[in-house]
């Protein structure tokens, strides 16, 4: 079986995988990082979204072996070691942007990428279009859009995080 070495949430790992093992299967089954979810089998829902070298990707549409040498960031790697949440996590909570929580990890990872790539600002329309690759069945997206707009303000230094 081939071996793949990569960095996941800052930690180096080397794992034996079948060539057909998907990155999401590596994360969930080999590394026990079950925060990344699988919601479909046609690369539509985005529940499996993680960051690969700083870009959002669907970990269900990538072989684990393709991640050789890459840096992967999952939902488990966002909060600081002391438990302080990433501003996106904090704003999702503040604005009730999640209900069942299943799409949430992928949604948060996509949202962070979207905000990172748009320091110039994000309109509501851009946020909605930017979430094209993520399905949520619970919220109607309304509060997700609000949370992302609020997180943009914090991530680009326009506002401080709400005091907990």
């Amino acid at each position: 079986m081939p071996q793949v070495s990569l960095k996941v949430n800052g930690k180096k790992v080397t794992v034996e995988v079948e060539p057909r093992t998907l990155l999401v299967e590596l994360l969930r089954e080999k590394l026990g990082l079950t925060g990344t979810h699988i919601g479909c089998d046609t690369s539509q829902c985005g529940a499996c979204t993680v960051h690969l070298n700083g870009d959002s990707v669907k970990s269900c549409t990538m072989l684990a072996v393709q991640a050789e040498g890459a840096e992967v960031l999952t939902i488990e790697g966002l909060a600081r070691p002391d438990g302080t949440l990433h501003p996106m996590q904090e704003m999702f909570r503040e604005h009730h942007a999640l209900q069942c929580g299943y799409c949430t990890p992928g949604m948060v990872m996509s949202a962070i990428d979207l905000v990172n790539k748009h320091p110039e600002g994000l309109t509501e329309e851009q946020i909605r279009e930017g979430l094209e690759g993520n399905l949520c069945r619970c919220t109607g997206y309304h509060n997700i859009v609000k949370a992302i707009a609020a997180a943009w303000e914090i991530m680009h230094g326009k506002k401080a995080a709400r005091a907990a």
Binding site: G46, D55, S110, G130, G133
Partner: peptide, 9 residues
């Protein structure tokens, strides 16, 4: 094309 995640790959 596709969505942002797809466009990254």
């Amino acid at each position: 094309i596709g969505d942002e995640q797809v466009r990254h790959r």
